[in-house]
Amino acid sequence: MAEGEKYRKERLDRGIKARSDTIYVLASSRDLLYLLMPRALPVALLILLPILLHGTYWEKVLFYSCIFGLLALSWDFMNSVGLVSLGQALFFGAGAYFAGALNHYLGWPIFLTIPAGTIGGALICTALLVPVVRLRGVYFSIVTLILPLLFAHLIETLEILGGTHGLLSLSAYPSGWIAIYLAVGALLLALFGFRKILDEDFGMILRGIRDDDRVVMAAGVNIYWYKAQSIFLAAAVGSFAGALMTHYYQFVGRSVLALDYTILPLAAVVLGGPGSFAGAALGSFILVPLSEALRAMGGLRMALYGLILIGALAALPEGIFHYLQRRYHQFERMVKV
């Protein structure tokens, strides 16, 4: 350059990242730590937290965070297949009502209702959504948005499944530990499971469908079958959250089909950063406790909550997780041009 004094910011991968990414040789325990830390630390924290928070109000908050985390993961998974869902409440509600009804009418014990609710709810949701997997983009989203509202009204007007009163006095967990560790375990399983699935060949097809479904079709893959499978997986995770919550409350009513269970997970994913699953989980572990902490504000709570959300999105549109990930793997410095 003529001036010779121009600088620009340069972004480089850390040496340790380049080494562990490509060579697969871990030179030292420091390398091992570098790779394991971001995975092991949250896992250890999640396993320890129930013990630390035992008996306090925040134990409940942790449970809700896991529930919303599961829904956020389920949203993120559908999103990575290109299915933008606005109906996580459908999955949640299906699981909740399925487990609740089996327990209430047939007297099934918890350890049967939760698996049955998970599988049954997922099957129902898949059956409901399979006819519309051919719809793309916003048309699919609208159908998923309407379905939970439709069922809420059906339950109300037809007075089925307890009608407006809901199903009361369902069986409780034998111990609070079981509930919370089921939630934490399911969250970790879904988080790492989904990440693993997307890394497999199966996941490659799913990501291909999101990027350009016609190319995948041209390769001779039945994309509707893959879409149905991914809806089933996402719905199973959502339904499990619903079934878990039902027995935690010992109650299931129309509120499980409410818009909250759609919007909050979505907000969590957007805040945490979509596409990585870790972002979705992180987002719900920020949003749910935040919304609880703001309870002291009274009426201003939702307004303040909204402001914080908008502020975070404006400052970090890529999502918190992606930002942290970049900071962890890369460093910046000024270099002379």
């Binding site: 350059m1 121009k6 910011k9 972004r11 970090l316 549109p317 890529e318 992606h322 930002y323």
Partner: peptide, 11 residues
């Protein structure tokens, strides 16, 4: 920049 993607420098 807003997406956190590639940083483009023009000189």
């Amino acid at each position: 920049e807003r997406r956190g993607g590639e940083r483009i420098t023009v000189m």
